[in-house]
Simulated scan of single mutants.
Amino acid sequence: MKRGVITTCCLALGLSFLVSVPAHADTSGLWMSSSRQNLTSKAGVGTSAHIKIANKTDAPMDVQLSVKSFNVDSQTRAITFVDPREDWITPDVPRLELAPTEEQDINYRIAIPVTADEKEYHFALIASTVVGSDQNAKTLRVASLLYLSVDGGHLTRAGDITSAHVPSFAFGTTIPYTFAIKNTGDIHLELQSNVQLQGQAWNSLTTARPAVVLPGESRTISDAVTSPSLPGIYTLRYGYTDDTTGAKTLEVVPVIYLPIWAVGVLASLLLASVWLWQRRRSGKISATSDQ
C-alpha cells in the first residue's frame, strides 16, 4: 500500500482533532462543515455520512473528493493520511463545481462487508482544490475525520492511567506533573484531563484539557499547577473524564509544599536551635569545671 502524507492547509482541522473540540474546517477558501464524525454500524449493514462543502471565494472552484485512512503519531500527535485498506466509502460524486459562495451537501455511501472485523476504523473524507494560477497556484485540502465502529456487541470503551510523575516535595512557584492516559479498549476516547491541587484552606483552579486517544495509543499530559501561598501537605488530584459516558478515572497523591522562604525560616530556626543547644551545653560544662 502506497503511503503518502497529505498536509492539510486547514489549521482548524488539526486543532479540532488534537483538542477534541468540533470546529469547521476552513482554509479561507474551501470550507467543510464537520471536522469529526462518529458512526456505528454492523458488518453487512450499509450506512452513510454527510458533509457540507462551500466555496468561500469569489471565483469558481473545482473540488475533488477522496477517501483516506488516518493515523496519529502518539508523540507529536501529527495526523498522517494514507490509502485505506478498506474500499468501503464512496462519495455520490467524485468531483463538483462550486460557484462563488456556493455550498453543497455531499453524501458518502458506506458499504460494510459481512466479513468486516469488529473494531473501529478511521477514515478521512477529503476535499481538495487548486486556487490561483502559475507560480501563485496552491492546493487547499480540508477533511472530516470519520470514526466508524463495526460493532457486533463486543466492542469495549476503556482507558487507564499507565504512568505518572508528581514530586513528593515542591519548592517553587509551580508544581509540575506528568501522567499518561492509555486507551485499552476498542474505540477512541474523547476525554477531558483534569488536575487540581487541594488543601485544607486552599484549592487551585481545575486544569482541564480535551483530548482524543485512539485504541492502543497513549496520550501524555504534562503541565504544572500554581503553588499555594503557604507551606503544608497538599493533595494533587489528577485523571480524566470520558466525555461520552461521564465516567471519571482519578488518582490522588500527597505533595509537601515548602516555599523557599519557608525553607529559609526552617533553616534559621534549626541553626538557632543548634546554637542555643551548644550555648547551654558549654554553660553546663563551665559550671562543672568551676565546681
Rank of each mutant, 00 (worst) to 15 (best):
G152A: 01
G246Q: 03
T288A: 11
G185N: 00
A170G: 08
P113G: 05
L271Y: 14
D242W: 07
S144M: 12
W277H: 05
V130P: 02
V45L: 09
G264L: 15
S16T: 11
Y147F: 15
F169G: 01
N55L: 02
V255W: 00
D58S: 15
Q200W: 10
L18A: 09
T220H: 03
L96M: 15
V253M: 03
G283R: 13
A208P: 00
L13I: 04
I260R: 14
I256D: 03
K119S: 01
S128N: 08
L39N: 09
L191V: 04
D83R: 13
V213D: 00
I89V: 15
H24C: 05
T178V: 03
T244M: 08
T139R: 09
F179Y: 13
A262D: 05
P254V: 06
K56A: 06
K138Y: 15
H188L: 10
V274M: 14
N107I: 12
L155P: 04
L271C: 11
F169R: 10
V150D: 03
D242K: 07
L189I: 05
V82R: 06
S74H: 11
A262I: 00
T173G: 07
D92I: 08
W277Y: 05
A43W: 04
L230M: 10
D151Y: 04
Q104T: 06
S282A: 14
L11W: 14
A247M: 07
T156V: 10
W202L: 01
A224R: 13
W88H: 11
P254D: 07
D290I: 12
P22T: 12
A180S: 15
V67M: 07
I51K: 02
F70G: 04
A164Y: 07
V253R: 01
P94V: 02
D73F: 13
I221Y: 03
M32V: 02
